[in-house]
Amino acid sequence: MKTFVYIDHFKGAVQPASWEALGLAKSFGSAVALVFGSGVDGIAQSAFEFGADEVLLVDDPALLDYRAEPFASTLSALAAASSPDLILFPTTARTRELAAMSAVDLGTGVLTDVIALEANGNQLVATRPIYEGKVLEKTVCSGKPVMATLRARAFPKPAAEAGRTGTLTKAEARAEALTNVEGYAVAENVVNLTDAGVIVSGGRGVSNNPSLGLDEMATAHKGFELVGELASVLGGAVGASRAAVDAGYIPYSNQVGQTGKVVSPDLYIAAGISGAIQHLVGMRNAKLIVAINKDADAPIFTQARYGVVGDLFAILPALTEAFKKKLGK
């Protein structure tokens, strides 16, 4: 089977789930990595190292910024020219659009957020969560190529083999664009929640510590500092509930849940989060859930393996210290 794997990147920083997709492609047969952008031969080299047999490189100044239309047209043209059986993508904001549009061009379908993909004879069967993960469906696509966006961390990441090479093929961009990129306000600390192995999240509880004698916002900043310190000792990312985001304690990009990100880390620590269903649907697939909450009846404890009924302002710093010692940091 011939599989295209779209390597998604933002200004040269590759979404690690792209490599997971490459690993999956290899398990089905030959893998052709697609690298689009401007000045991206470094990414092509990485693609070889993560296992690509061939790289289709479209390096063109017109593709410097991701824009849906030219990227989709370029992908559609390449797919039409070499008829792959399958096109895999990591699931990101960009690939959802790109795959959606290219599927219109090719008259095929996209299976999104795929967590398992099996070949059954010559049919591919994808498993994906629907209804916010309350139900799973097995789904098939009768069009060709089958397009699938993979949920981050659902498939193993292959090991890179330094210096590995393969066939590099250069291809033309389809540059017709309908939108202009005017600029960016890139987050100082890009939070990559979907790829994170460890997430420590704070909720409305981070602003609840009258003994500090600070106002709500200053208290919340102090609270998130404690969340951040624990996350950093564990090499993890900082998440948040929507209540914390709505109150302006932390940006929307940190939000976990129905209207934020759906995450599946190995460890999720929720501090000062009650555990509303809209939060739970975003994190309940974490391997290990730990909750710290003042209220013994908070619903978050129904999802957690370990819990502490207590004040996050006391427990978080103590936990940070404990891990520093035990991990030798």
Partner: peptide, 22 residues
């Protein structure tokens, strides 16, 4: 339809009894 459902499943239920650390 190009995309069709072949099967519907409930996710494996997680055994979660919380252990409260004191």
């Amino acid at each position: 339809a190009v995309v069709t459902r072949a099967e519907l499943m409930n996710p494996p239920s997680r055994e979660t009894t919380v252990e409260i650390i004191t």
